[in-house]
Structure formats: C-alpha cells, structure tokens
Design a protein around this nucleic acid. Structure first.
Length: 278
DNA sequence: CGACTTTGACCCGCGC
DNA sequence: GCGCGGGTCAAAGTCG
C-alpha cells in the first residue's frame, strides 16, 4: 500500500516536472514571438512614417486644393455645419491589436494622443465603436475608429483616416482616457491598407507567400534564434530582411488572420498566457 | 479649472 | 420622400 502510494507520488512528480518543462518551453516561445512582434511593429511604424513623408512630398507637388484626383471642397463657406472630414484618395489604414482578454477599453497605443468624440453601437457588431480625433495638434485632421473584432473580442480594430500634420511622440502613449484608465499592454498584430468595402476579408484576399513559405521562414527564424541564444540583433537583422520583401507584410497579415480566426486556437491561448497584468 | 469622457440628439448620405 | 444607420456635435459629468 505504502509502496503503491510512493509510486503514485513519483508518477505525479514526473507529470508535474513534465508540465513545468512544457510551461517553460511555452513561455520561452511566447517571449520569442513577442520579441519578433515588437521588432516588427517598430519597423512597421518607421515604414509608415517614411510613407507619410513620401506622400507629403508628393502632395506638395500638386495644387494646394487637390489631393490626387479628388478636389477638396471649400470648408468654411457653406451654410451647413462644417464637417472637418477631408476626402482623401488614400484608403483607410486598419490596425489590428490584441489586447488583454480582460480589458474592455478601446485603447490602441500608436504614439499619438487621441480625444474621444463619440461612440456608437453599429448594426454589424455588438461591440461599441469609438470615434477618436487626434489631439496632439489643434488642426490635425486625423481621425480613427476603434472597435472590437466581431469574432474575437480580444482583437481591437483601429481604422485611421487622414494624415497627421505633426510628429508622433515616441514614448508609447495611447488613446488617452484619463490617467486612471488602464493602459493596455497590447501587441499590434498587423497593419493593412484596406478598402472599406472589404473589411476583414483580408485573410482570404491576400496572396504572396504560400503557407509552406510562412512556416519555413518562421522555422528559420526560430532556428536562428535558438542557435544564438535569442539575440535581438539577429532577430532584427532577420526582420529587416523580411521587411525588404514587399509581400511580407501581406503574408504576415494572412498568417495572423488565420491565427485569429481560430485555426491556431491553442497557440492563441499560449500567447495570452503570459500577458503582464498592468 | 481645464482636459477629457459620456451619451443622447442631430446631421446627412444612401437605398428603396 | 422616407427611413435607416454611420458619423458628429455638444452639454453634462468626471477627474486630477
């Protein structure tokens, strides 16, 4: 009887050890993935800023009241209430951000300060959509809409309209909502320029690398990462080489969407396991 | 007191 | 013309 109990205890111990080892492995994998995402995000931000500068340079070449083929109407000479909405030829930029599952605030860290001016429950999504205006510069025309993803409430979709006429602050500030409000420690999943008529269909619409290519590149990244003890420099080098590939962003988006839509539910859970409670 | 959020009312474009 | 729905306004409330 005692021997049997002893054996059971040993088996339990082994199981605990196995689980601990597995947990440790998952944590490490999670950290690696997070690192890669953070590097990707910073690269992405730099690219966006660069793109904005290029666009601004192009706009300077055009007449003052024309943006592309769209003529900007006079804003202040009408009897109607002036709308600050500027028609632009650009498609809205959408950013998908994973937030802490427990957090229900619509805050997206993007380096700008935002002032909320409205909230609506839309027909196609039970989660309220919040409307923000950039408050870093008084005349900044940029607006954004933030709404939780219909299929995964931990994903926040931020849609940006317009271009900032000022620089972003570099510290990770957020959509401000009172000092006491929780600031989400969120990981930007991806950015994608979408036509508003095709929301959330990107996963199906994107092409580029095949699924095998994704896996191979990911495995290569992990392999390199393991070989040199998780060196950030190597990751950064790898990421920058990836970013040089024009299809990479779209392909990454595809992979992420696949993950979001549940194909990799388990990995999803793992990602959330280690979110810091801030 | 200023900056911000909340929220109901209003505006306006679009489809029928 | 009418109704619906997304987007915006603005007064009131909240917070530091």
């Amino acid at each position: 009887m005692v021997v049997q109990l002893f054996n059971t205890a040993i088996i339990m111990d082994e199981k605990v050890e196995t689980l601990k080892a597995e947990l440790q492995r998952v944590r490490e994998e999670n950290n690696t993935l997070r690192l890669m995402l953070e590097v990707l995000n910073s690269k992405c931000t730099k690219l966006e800023i660069h793109l904005q500068e290029i666009n601004k340079a192009q706009h300077k070449g055009m007449s003052s009241n024309q943006i592309g083929s769209v003529t900007v109407p006079p804003m202040f000479d009408t009897n109607k209430r002036p709308r600050l909405e500027l028609p632009t030829a650009k498609k809205p930029l959408q950013i998908f951000v994973r937030t802490h599952p427990k957090d229900d605030s619509l805050i997206v860290k993007d380096g700008y300060q935002w002032r909320k001016y409205g909230q609506k429950v839309t027909k196609d999504n039970a989660s309220p959509r919040a409307y923000f205006r950039c408050s870093m510069a008084p005349m900044c025309p940029v607006k954004k809409k933030v709404q939780r993803c219909l299929h995964d409430k931990s994903i926040v979709v931020a849609t940006y309209d317009g271009e900032h006429n000022h620089a972003a602050i570099h510290e990770s500030s957020s959509s401000t909502s009172k000092g006491s409000s929780p600031v989400v420690n969120n990981l930007p999943l991806m950015t994608s320029i979408l036509n508003d008529k095709e929301p959330m269909n990107i996963g199906l619409a994107l092409s580029g690398w095949s699924q095998t290519d994704h896996r191979r590149h990911c495995e290569d990244a992990m392999q390199q990462n393991n070989n040199n003890g998780g060196s950030n420099i190597r990751i950064e080098e790898y990421v920058s080489s990836l970013i040089k590939n024009p299809d990479f962003s779209m392909s990454l988006a595809e992979a992420v969407v696949r993950t979001i839509t549940g194909q990799q539910k388990q990995q999803d859970i793992n990602l959330n396991l280690d979110l810091p409670e801030e």
